[in-house]
């Protein structure tokens, strides 16, 4: 099997495990490239259907093209969709640096929507190669009632046997794309012809490599205006993917703090 086929098969296996073992199940659909790939893989796993709820954690501050994309594909793909509005910045932990606080609104929004709908499993499109902290994640990763991630005592995970038993009050974060790289994602998008938000393609020498909220996400300098150009750019770039995400860079452990309190 070639690499993409192997990754696809593994992710489908994980999605099916999640759907069988964890109920009710939902998926965070940030509308970025990764969560679009995840949604596509779900349709492969379930033969054209998406048998769980999709959620956008909406700060009201997403980029306009992101909202437009959402409106189009909720209909087109016949999705069960929740628009989860995030609480204002005043409700976040004031000890965090300002841009990290802006990101922490999503953590609160997520907690709220989980509580409201009593979700036991949340599917997320995070990848190991995005960020050093995320590289230490498990595929099935338990969260405590407060949403907290106990990274010092993570469960055993091997031979494709995942932690699917958990105490009431906790929930699982499930990460079917953990083993994918940014390059894999784009090669798969090309192979499958998966629609993405147009902001990824360069206009006037700039493009978004990672999508986030308006004030804390910035485009990078690039001329990659097609899928092929993006793929060849990624093969040579030495820029980290999240370079344009301000919250990662405020403090050495900013992202660790965000994640251990429940961020994605």
């Amino acid at each position: 099997m070639n690499k993409l086929k192997e990754l696809e098969a593994q992710s489908i296996y994980i999605l099916r495990e999640a759907y069988n073992r964890v109920k009710p199940l939902a998926m965070l659909w940030s509308l970025g490239k990764d969560s679009n790939v995840l949604l596509w893989l779900a349709r492969k796993a379930f033969f054209g259907h998406v048998p769980f709820t999709t959620i956008l954690l909406d700060t009201g501050n997403e980029l306009d093209e992101v909202y437009a994309f959402r409106d189009e594909y909720v209909k087109k793909w016949n999705l069960t969709y929740i628009n989860a509005e995030c609480p204002p910045i005043e409700e976040t932990d004031p000890s965090l640096p300002p841009k990290t606080r802006a990101a922490a609104r999503k953590t609160l929004g997520l907690k709220r929507v989980i509580e409201q709908h009593q979700f036991k499993g949340i599917l997320l499109g995070i990848r190991r190669d995005e960020q050093a902290i995320r590289s230490k994640e498990r595929v099935f990763s338990p969260r405590h009632e407060s949403g907290e991630w106990k990274f010092r005592d993570q469960p055993l995970e091997f031979w494709d046997q995942y932690k699917t038993d958990f105490v009431t009050g906790t929930h699982l974060r499930i990460h079917p794309l953990l083993a994918w790289t940014e390059l894999d994602i784009w090669e798969y998008i090309k192979q499958e012809n998966i629609p993405v938000v147009p902001l990824y393609f360069a206009r006037n020498g700039m493009r978004y490599r990672s999508l986030g909220e308006k004030d804390i996400t910035h485009p990078i300098v690039s001329n990659a205006a097609t899928l092929d150009e993006i793929i060849s750019e990624l093969k040579t770039t030495k820029q980290p993917e999240r370079a344009g995400r301000a919250m990662d860079h405020e403090q050495e452990d900013a992202f660790e703090k965000l994640r251990s309190s429940g961020y994605m």
Partner: peptide, 17 residues
């Protein structure tokens, strides 16, 4: 990557790169 790992100079959890 964990703060605790750097402070104690030991690896606590597995990592992939």
């Amino acid at each position: 990557a964990f703060q605790a790992e750097r402070d104690q100079a030991i690896t606590i959890d597995t990592s992939q790169i």
